[in-house]
Simulated assay, not measured.
Amino acid sequence: MKLDKFDREILRVMQKDATVSMAELSQYVGLSHTPCWRRVKRMEAEGIIRQKVTLLDAKKLSLGVSVFIYVTLKNHDGDSLTKFETAVQEIDEIIECHTTSGDKDYLLKVMVRSIEEYELLLKSKLTCLPLVDHLSSTFALKQVKNTTELPI
């Protein structure tokens, strides 16, 4: 789907505040209510707008420890990858899982309350993930940038 300047502006505004009313959105982008509404509905139907979410403050929820974990698997056949990826879905503390190129197979992002909580998670769940050969953890010291907005 080709996006014009109005579509892109609608997306920019909605990324900043998904609760914006259609009346406010149409004012921000310089369209009347109905054409703006049609564009939003079209982008929802096309899957460009997947969902509207509420963003939470991890620190205020006492989830102050972010850990990035590189995972290397023992096997790389399709069944092994599927088993690992299915198991990852069951661990709530894993908030992101990416396949990667190079000598590591996956990159996980984990959020926990403390180093001790991470140690328990590591021992009780992460090392038990199917076909894991090696885990390498790195703790984030400070988050320098955090955005949910795509560069459109």
Rank of each mutant, 00 (worst) to 15 (best):
M1I: 09
M1R: 11
K2T: 11
L3H: 10
D4P: 02
K5Q: 07
D7H: 13
R8H: 11
R8N: 14
R8P: 05
R8D: 02
E9K: 15
E9G: 05
L11C: 03
L11H: 10
M14V: 08
Q15W: 01
A18R: 13
T19K: 15
S21E: 08
E24Y: 02
L25I: 01
L25V: 07
S26K: 12
Q27V: 06
Q27R: 15
Q27L: 07
Y28M: 10
Y28Q: 11
L31K: 03
S32P: 03
S32T: 15
T34N: 06
P35G: 05
W37L: 11
W37A: 07
V40K: 10
R42L: 09
M43F: 08
G47H: 04
I48Y: 12
I49G: 05
R50D: 09
Q51R: 15
K52N: 01
T54S: 13
L55K: 03
L55H: 01
D57Y: 00
A58K: 02
K59Y: 00
K60D: 00
K60N: 01
L61W: 03
V65K: 15
V65N: 01
V67G: 03
F68A: 08
I69H: 05
Y70R: 04
L73K: 04
H76F: 03
H76P: 03
D77E: 11
T82Q: 12
K83Y: 11
V88Q: 09
Q89C: 01
Q89V: 02
Q89L: 13
E93A: 14
E93S: 12
I94V: 10
I94T: 02
C97K: 04
T100V: 14
S101F: 15
G102A: 06
D103R: 09
D103K: 11
D105N: 10
Y106H: 02
L108T: 04
V110P: 04
I115R: 10
E116A: 11
E116T: 14
E117R: 05
E117V: 00
E117H: 06
E119K: 13
E119W: 01
L121R: 02
L121A: 01
L121Y: 08
L122D: 10
S124H: 09
S124K: 15
L126H: 04
L126G: 05
T127S: 12
T127M: 12
C128G: 11
L129R: 14
L129Y: 10
P130L: 07
L131Q: 12
V132E: 09
V132R: 07
V132Y: 12
H134T: 14
L135W: 04
L135Q: 03
S136H: 14
S136M: 12
S137Q: 01
S137Y: 02
A140V: 14
A140N: 03
L141T: 08
L141Q: 13
K142A: 07
V144M: 07
T147N: 10
T147M: 02
T148H: 13
E149M: 11
P151G: 07
